[in-house]
Design a protein around this nucleic acid. Structure first.
Lengths: 208, 208
DNA sequence: CGTTATTTTAAACAAGCGTTTGAATTAGGG
DNA sequence: CCCTAATTCAAACGCTTGTTTAAAATAACG
């Protein structure tokens, strides 16, 4: 395995677990069993490494996500919100065949990215992968046309918060759930729990 | 004003803005115009300072919140979920008379606390202020008795994610909203937008 | 006032950080 | 094989971090 890949593999796990600020290059390189200087040699800087970690996932996810949302809009004039959010399920779970625990890791990284580093990753994602956002808002627009642009803006951010926050601490939450309720839970189960929640949230009656 | 208060006032703003890990003691003490060593002298360590910042807010909030939820359960046998979440509004907004931008600052701190520091603040809050959680889950239980404990567990965490994530980046979101929609928005407006969302989310039909 | 306790101060500490350097090693193409 | 380019490596760089020290200044009190 190439040095670059070894670094990316080690970095994504540590980033997901302890955040970008909370993970040092020395932790990453010793976990990856490569020299400390390798990060700056292959990626230039820690910030570029963070982008590379996210890009590897986004390049895998975004085409599948865009085509899933696109297909839904073609085959149904009025998709339900549950259908819209369910369109995320397969592309997200595909990350598990792309990498072990890929879905969970990616969603945790996403959560970190929106809170660490005063949100530079939010900028990176919205500018580098705008297609995901536009396809998504279009699908929601078709599912719930009465929603104004402003209300949709807020509800989509609420939804992102729900997903991202839950997933960034999903390991701890799954542990608690397994102990308290004596039930086997995995990341797919959490996603299936969250879909009706966010669908109902976005579909909430408008109070004016 | 006492040195302790000057430190707390400076720390909470910086913590809310840049996170706990992202704020150094030197930033805090120079903002507060006190000596660097004052933090360790008055609080013992940075971690204890973080706890003190949170406690100052929690001690102001939690009795009002608990009594508001308690009162709601007394006066109504079957409160609606909107009523339950609306019970948070007054106690939260009261923080604005406690301190300038108190509501926004506190909610941002809460958001930071659940993602920074591998969630030690989650432990601190749940162990030091358990009454808030039990009162809240009891109120939700009365509003939606069909919900199993496990489903409630997840939906409450989804809700916390929605609130906490939104508020931790509320400044950025409010800026975007003001530019894109040419509307005056403040923290109370965001809270009023989020209440129907989370109420509908928690009330979502159960899929089994 | 004088003495004791409390608080403030400047300076230094050890440790960790991201990054850079230049030499050593490995790989590739003529 | 040889020369060149690419990669790895140990070491150090300069800087920031939280914390500690011991002296100086201030406050409290009999």
């Amino acid at each position: 395995m190439s040095t670059k890949t070894k670094i990316l593999d080690a970095a994504e796990v540590l980033f997901a677990d302890k955040g970008f600020n909370g993970t040092s290059l020395r932790e990453i390189t010793s976990q990856a069993e490569v020299n400390l200087a390798a990060v700056n040699y292959h990626f230039g800087s820690k910030k570029e490494l963070i982008k590379a970690v996210m890009s590897r996932y986004m390049n895998e996810l975004s085409p599948r996500l865009e085509s899933a949302l696109h297909a839904l809009c073609l085959e149904e004039v009025h998709p339900t919100l549950v259908e819209v959010f369910s369109a995320f399920l397969d592309p997200l779970l595909h990350l598990n065949s792309f990498k072990d625990n890929g879905t969970s890791t990616f969603l945790q990284l996403l959560g970190r990215g929106f809170t660490d580093n005063q949100g530079f990753l939010r900028w990176f994602l919205t500018t580098q992968y705008p297609g995901v956002f536009t396809n998504f808002t279009q699908a929601v627009q078709k599912a719930y046309p009465e929603l104004s642009k402003e209300e949709m803006f807020w509800r989509l951010h609420f939804t992102m918060g729900t997903i991202v926050f839950t997933m960034s601490s999903s390991d701890a939450l799954i542990d608690i759930a397994q102990n308290d309720f004596d039930r086997q839970v995995d990341i797919a189960g959490v996603i299936k729990q969250v879909i009706p929640y966010v669908a109902a949230g976005v579909a909430a009656p408008i109070i004016r």
